[in-house]
Design a protein around this nucleic acid. Structure first.
Lengths: 201, 201
DNA sequence: CCTCAATGTAGGCAGCGCCAACAATGCTGT
DNA sequence: ACAGCATTGTTGGCGCTGCCTACATTGAGG
């Protein structure tokens, strides 16, 4: 059938990217529960089945969203460390500030990223993305070890302590269990305690 | 209409509790996404609208599930501390073991508990439950401060460091980003590093 | 140009949450 | 004892969802 002269072109052009952008926006504004393939399609003026051409199911779109989130997070973490003085405490604080900032700006996305419901296929990609995040931490730790700023020992274990600590803060912020402003202003002391321990010296 | 002699009684007896039990089971076995009021009703042999008499909507059931989770978690945390030697490191390790154990046994439930999608009314109850959890941490910290095992300073801030560290581990476990067995065996050293810091002394 | 893969459309199916109207039950006051 | 009433369960239906299949339109490569 010929299409009416007033309608937009039959092919959208870059529907996949548009879906991701729109979904990310919905996620931020109305939460995970409000994500609907049909509604995304309506918003973009395409038919309700069009998204199916780019994401085999809803979970696939969510996985793509999560993957994109990791990429942005990794970018933020890496540049934060790069722009900090080569001092462990400052670098760690910068890393924390970037991480917590991401959590404040993208709480629902962070929740998605660390959810346990990913397609087994995409799980590999996501795991790689997580490793890249942890890699930033590990690099920080090993460098500091070389400078003698961190105790010797398995870098992975030490990384886990630092990463878990910041991830815990980020998760609490994303879950509304911790006041974002308070967490950000207290971050410096948090890192200090992490590095120097809770026991008296 | 008179009921057939072969059918079960018109009234279930304790449908609300049965729904919660069944939902918790589904949550553990098939994940959050598989939770359906209609399916729960079918499983329990009641009509599809019966759950509505006990939970005004699906979120209300989820909130109840989360609340129950907090109660079990708080119980576990409290008894763990009580049964440990009055030594900070041992108490903290016991607390961590209890927390991580809960995360391993109830990953989906933990995800629900810290999700950001609760009814504003129930949020108060949930916040109180969270405070009770953190209270266990704070008590631990203040007691240790009195014994001189922890540096002086705002107990809340110190609590946040410890709690965030363990919560981070638990969240990573629940999200399949950390191997549970590895986390549990490494817990002792994790706590040690937390208390003594990452910097060389 | 013709063909074909990629992309979008139309329609339909089953399941879901939620709602309103109605039925069965058990409690309570007289 | 029993009438009235609140509680709890049932039935049916609405609009929404994700997903599937068959079909239409388009652009690109032989």
């Amino acid at each position: 059938m010929m299409r009416m002269s007033t309608s937009r072109p039959y092919h959208h052009g870059d529907l996949r990217a548009a879906l991701l952008r729109s979904a990310e926006r919905t996620l931020r504004e109305k939460g995970t529960g409000a994500l609907s393939l049909r509604e995304l399609a309506r918003d973009l003026g395409v038919s309700h089945a069009a998204p199916g051409r780019h994401f085999k199911d809803k979970q696939a779109l969510i996985d793509a969203l999560a993957l994109d989130g990791y990429e942005r997070l990794n970018q933020a973490l890496a540049t934060a460390v790069d722009h900090a003085e080569p001092d462990l405490e400052q670098q760690m604080t910068a890393l924390g500030r970037a991480y917590l900032g991401f959590a404040v700006d993208n709480p629902e996305l962070l929740e998605l990223m660390f959810a346990r419901k990913h397609d087994p296929d995409r799980t590999a990609q996501l795991a790689a993305a997580v490793d890249r995040s942890l890699g930033t931490f590990t690099r920080l730790v090993t460098d500091a070890q070389e400078r003698g700023e961190v105790i010797q020992g398995d870098p992975e274990r030490i990384t886990t302590v630092a990463a878990a600590s910041l991830h815990g803060l980020a998760a609490l912020i994303a879950g509304c269990a911790l006041d974002p402003a308070q967490a950000l202003t207290g971050l410096e002391e948090h890192v200090h305690l992490l590095l120097h321990g809770l026991r008296p010296r």
